[in-house]
Design a protein around this nucleic acid. Structure first.
Length: 327
DNA sequence: AACGTAGCCAACCGCCTACAC
DNA sequence: CGTGTAGGCGGTTGGCTACGT
């Protein structure tokens, strides 16, 4: 690898084992009180900043090497949802991991994983339905066009479309209640609709990771009786029965508490699922990518998407709640 | 075998903040 | 209070490697 040298004569680029040894020796002898003075003390032709970075990100004895565990992954996702790109703060919750390492892990893997799961990595909220549906549109089209649709099939597709519209609307209502903005992706797996849509090999997941779902529900339940935007009675009353069970059974983070991270089990109370397969018919076990999760994982513990499914699948209940919502 | 591409990660860059003077 | 400097932080780059064509 080519060695680069700055105009001031200081070396840049990758560190050699010899340089590493000199730096470690020096810090063990003298500590690193002044990073500016350290290179001279160590006999290194590097700037203090470079030495500090090398030490903190690579040579420090308490650095934890190796792949991130699932637990660490969950912590990072949840902390990022709370803190954003505060890598140094996030690193403080993960002993032995550096901010740089976490940042790289986030940018190269977690971000993509969340995107695949339909979650916007910046907001930790579901991506827009267009973002989500467009990638699978060709599959949906090719699947349906590959069949000779009978009238029954056509009607079925219409039903699918109606169900999809309902899901989108529920998602938008939820987001409106929570953030005052709309545009949200369909929060349930495609197989919810019908086999005609469910056969598409699409990366589905619950609408939000469990943690965020907890926040959503918490906010949801703490909404004032009247909607702040419309000064009308909130939709929550109409929807509350649907979520009651979920709210009672799920552990949710107390967003009013500043004790984030103090609970020893707060990261084990829920799972951040990966992806679920769109259709057991379509995907055999050995075909499933490792980032897919089973439907069983998806449905336990109960989530809002289950509640949504209840709305959608139970026609009587559906009619009742939708009547309430639309009134 | 050669080439192209994507993923990964160490290291650098530039900006911000705290602090000393 | 203004200025200079060191340290810290997040964003970005560039090289290495693995994999696909």
């Amino acid at each position: 690898m080519e060695m680069t040298t700055e105009e001031n004569g200081l070396k840049k680029g990758p560190w050699t084992p010899e340089e590493d040894r000199m730096l470690v020796d020096c810090i063990q002898k003298h500590g690193h009180g002044s990073w500016k003075e350290l290179p001279k003390l160590a006999g290194l032709n590097r700037c203090g900043k470079s030495c500090r970075l090398r030490w903190t990100n690579y040579l420090r004895p308490d650095i934890k090497r190796g792949a991130f565990t699932d637990e660490e992954e969950r912590v990072i996702i949840d902390l990022h949802a709370e803190l954003g790109n505060k890598w140094s703060v996030i690193a403080s919750y993960l002993p032995g991991r550096t901010d740089n390492e976490i940042k790289n892990f986030w940018n190269t893997r977690l971000k993509k994983k969340l995107l695949r799961n339909g979650i916007d990595p910046d907001t930790h909220m579901p991506r827009t339905h267009l973002d989500t549906l467009l990638p699978v549109l060709p599959q949906l089209l090719s699947y349906n066009s590959s069949r000779n649709l009978t009238w029954e099939g056509i009607v079925r597709s219409q039903e699918d479309a109606a169900r999809l519209a309902k899901v989108l609307l529920v998602g938008n209502i939820l987001q409106l209640l929570n953030t005052g903005t709309t545009s949200v992706l369909p929060p349930v797996a495609m197989e919810t609709f019908s086999p005609s849509l469910g056969s598409a090999q699409v990366t589905n997941r619950p609408p939000w990771d469990s943690h965020m779902m907890g926040l959503q529900l918490e906010r949801f339940t703490q909404k004032p009786e009247f909607d702040a935007l419309t000064c009308q009675p909130s939709f929550k009353d109409a929807l509350r029965p649907v979520f009651q069970n979920t709210m009672e059974t799920n552990n949710v983070m107390d967003i009013n508490s500043n004790k984030f991270g103090e609970s020893s089990n707060m990261y084990t109370d829920y799972e951040v699922p990966d992806l679920i397969s769109a259709s057991p018919v379509c995907l055999s076990t050995d075909q499933e990518p490792d980032n897919f999760i089973s439907l069983a994982e998806f449905s336990n513990p109960p989530t809002t998407s289950e509640a949504l499914e209840d709305i959608l699948m139970d026609d009587e209940a559906s009619n009742y709640y939708w009547k309430r919502v639309l009134e």
